[in-house]
């Protein structure tokens, strides 16, 4: 019975951790996309300010 409870908890925790990990990977992807956009904007601004 004890083992049973433990393995059930493990199954739930794994699924929950997986969902958390996906969020982390989402954060990384968003950050890298944002970084890229910011540098793009700076390049554009620079190009516009030097006539």
């Amino acid at each position: 019975l004890l083992e049973n409870v433990k393995s059930q908890a493990k199954g739930q925790l794994q699924a929950s951790e997986n969902r958390y990990l996906a969020q982390k990977h989402v954060t990384q992807a968003l950050q890298s996309e944002l970084l890229q956009l910011y540098s793009q904007i700076e390049i554009n601004n620079l190009a516009n300010s030097t006539p």
């Binding site: 059930q8 199954g11 739930q12 699924a15 997986n18 989402v26």
Partner: peptide
């Protein structure tokens, strides 16, 4: 997971993960 009474909970996690991504 093998425990059938965890299925609703885990199914919800799976669904949320899908939507998040």
């Amino acid at each position: 997971p093998p425990h059938t009474d965890s299925h609703p909970l885990v199914a919800r996690y799976r669904q949320e993960q899908y939507e998040d991504v």
